[in-house]
Every structure is written in C-alpha cells, then in structure tokens.
Nucleic acid binder design. Sequence first.
RNA 1: GGAGAGAUGGCCGAGUGGUCGAAGGCGCACGCCUGGAAAGCGUGUAUCCCAUGUGAAAUGGGAUCGAGGGUUCGAAUCCCUCUUUCUCCGCCA
Length: 425
Amino acid sequence: MLTIKLIQEQTDLVAERLRIKNFEATSILNEILQLDDLRRSIQSRMDNQLAELNSLSKQIGQFYREGKTSEAEAAKEKTAEFKEQGRILKEQLTQTENQIQELLVQLPNLPHELVPAGKTADDNLLIRSGGIIPTADPERKAHWDLLQSSKLIDFELGNKLTGAGFPVYKKEAARLQRALINFFLDQGIKAGYTEVQPPILVNQDSAYGTGQLPDKEGQMYHAEADGLYLIPTAEVPVTNIFRDEILEAADLPLRYIAYTPCFRREAGSWGSHVRGLNRLHQFDKVEIVQVRHPQNSYQGLDEMVNYVESLVSLLNLPYRIIRLCGGDMSFTSAMTYDFEVWAAGQGRWLEVSSVSNFESFQANRLKLRFKEKGDKRTTLAHTLNGSALALPRIVAAILENNQKGNEIMIPEILHPYTGFDRISL
RNA sequence: GGAGAGAUGGCCGAGUGGUCGAAGGCGCACGCCUGGAAAGCGUGUAUCCCAUGUGAAAUGGGAUCGAGGGUUCGAAUCCCUCUUUCUCCGCCA
C-alpha cells in the first residue's frame, strides 16, 4: 500500500510511475487527496468536540468532590450536545477512512525507475544467463512422458487422493525432492539466513498484510470454518512475523529462510502448457525473506539474485535472469527478477524463482517500521523476498536435462543428500 | 471439550469509576560524580492521528491498558461478545 504522504507530495510522479505498470491512477489519486482533506477536517472538528466533552467531565468530577451537586448536574446537561456531535463526526470519520482505504488498496506499488515499460513477458529484459543448454535430441522426453511407466511421480494417484495438481512423489522422486529441500536450506543457512518453520495456515490479518487480501482472494484455499487461509507461499507467514513491529535500525538487515508447502487454487489458469509438474495446486518451496533499511534494499535485492544464481549454478541447470517489465510485474512489487531454467524435454524455459523488492509497500500494510537508536521517528522498512527455490520445476528440469538413455543423472552436489547418483527408470 | 484464573508501557508489576498514558522496580539513553569504571545521584524513556509551527524541534488537542460492543457527564477499573495465556480434568499425534 502506498502512503498518503507520498501521494500528496508526489501526485504526478506516482501517476507517471504507475503508467509503467499500465495503471491509470489519476482519478483515484485525486479522489484520495480529496477524501484525505475531508478526513482531516472531520478529525479536527471531532477532536474539538471531544476536548470540550473531556474538560466538562473533569469539571463535573471537580464539582462532585467539592460537594457542588447542583453545578455538577447543570454541567451534565451541557455534555449531551458535544457527545452527540462527537458521535456523528466519529461515524463520518470512520466512513471516510474506509473509503480512503478502499481506494488505497487498489493502487499497485510503484515500479523502480529501472523497470522497463511494457505489457507482456515479451517486454521483459534479459539480464544474464548461464549454464549450457543441452543439444536438442529427439529422444529426449518431457518429464511426464519420462515418468510414465515408472510412476515415480504419480499424477493419477494424486488425482484419486485429492484431485488434479496434487501428485504423489514416490521412491527416488520423493527422496530427490527431500534432498533438494535440505540442500536449499543448508545453503541458505550458510549464506546467513535464519531458518524458520512457520504455520502454513494464516489468518486474515496476515493474508492482508502481505497483500494476498483483498487483491487475490480467489487464489488461496480458504478454510472457512476457521477463517484461515492455506498459504500460497512462505512469504506470507514469514513476512508477517514482523507485522506491527518497530525494529532497531542496527538489527537490519534481517534474513530469513523457510521451507513450506504452498497451495494455489490457480483458478482459471490451466491450459495445455501446464502439464505435469509445470503447475500444481500444492508444491514445495524454500523461500528467502529480507527486511532492510531503505537505503540498501537494492543491495539486498542484488544479494538475493546472486544467491539464487548460485543455487541454479550448483545444480548445473541452464538459466537466465530476467528483469520483469511493468506489465508483467506483480501488484506489490517495485522490481522483480525472474529466474528461468531450461527444461530440455519440453524445450522451454520454466520459471523457478521470482525475487522482488517491495520497498515499503508491504511494510506500510504490515506497519513494519524501524527506528534509529535515540531517534524518535519511525520509518517504514523495506521487505524483499524470493524463491530459493521452487521445487517441482527444478525437479522437472533435472529430470529432463539429465536423462541418459534409461537413467537420470543426479547433480553431483546433491549426492550427499540423495544417497544415490542416478535414477534408473 | 469441561471448570477456574489471567491478559496493563521494552520487561516485571501496582491500579476496581474522576486529578491515570497510567505508581514502583528493572532495563535503556543522557548528564553529574570518577584518573577510568562500578556504585550513587539527577533527567528522560510507547504508538498513531489532528492543529499551529520548524532546518530539525517544539507546543496544544484527540485516540490507544488483548480486540470489539455497551453502561456513564466520565471506564485500565462495571456489563456483554470474541481472541488468547496459564492451572486442573477429559481426549490425543
């Protein structure tokens, strides 16, 4: 959520930046500014009424203590008017605040100035790439064909248990996945991240804090009886650790890492290109989160990009790093880098990580602030997060890129984790 | 799930209708003291909003004692609902 202060001070800049995200904000911005003026004047008047009421109340107390009962009774008569006015103004204030809030949550985050303009993925900017794309080979299979007979990843069984998009991993596939999770966590800890295991169901406040609500309500599974949501990413519980917190500047940056299952309804986003592991309703992911001083949050973003790059490199996966254009970026992000790895069996790039700086956009909703020691003023912190990494597509890429005849070679770095160096089909 | 007791500032803890944003203690910051430190002494130490105002400040007002509602001229204090913690019982991975 953008701050009203920013909208007031830089109205034109805000409108201009939001156009990069193909969002025409002018009328909303003006409406907000108008409502905010109204809000202040209401607040002023209300405060005055309440101040009168408070001072009368004090007087009444004084009268009673002095035994001046009739004066006290007389003063009581006078309170009714202030009370009523105060009540009416309070109602107006709440209503106005709600209206402002409704408009504010419609505004996406401002893109950073380096974000390219554009509407679709075609306008994204290739930053760099690495690894070697295996030579095309007609023998090479997509992972769903590759596993067809072995059923190491059993989609039909998952369908029986739950439904489409909930596969069952078996034997080496299950162990490979577990190995990757441990590998990712260990790497993260080595890089200075603190491991946490958060709940995977969150309440409304948390879903709101990171922006899943109200923007993407339909994308989360909702346990209605308890008012809880299954998390679509560990970003939600981990970032919400800091909701309503005032941190010490000296404690920043904070780096957290968490493995969780993730749940996404993916309503309306299924098609022929999302077969197999490419898109699931439940998948595993290791997520990294940073909380930073605004001065160095982009340093943090670079650090996270380099870190994720190290992971795909260690796994010997051909990758490319892309800076998303305004139109392809998420609502909450100021700058996002996507990581894609080459899946040789399908002959296409798969997105395996998305690393973003949200600047103060999430922090504003979360009320996540920090304070310099000895300073009175609080400042919104910057939050960042990234996948490090999302499991299924990494598994898909490993399977597809490393197939040799009837075998799949496991990247060497994982051998200590898997306990085997190949999967025989 | 049943019964009971709680939820107060960074922490501990007092406060059962007015002078309470809240005693006291601890912690922290600054100052005095000291050759330096400790002890001691003094001062300060929540967040948000509004107004005036500024380089930063400051001053005045309003709100907040788990959350929401109610009673009252006035609520941390009384009533209701919810959340949550602890103890006992039941159940249980």
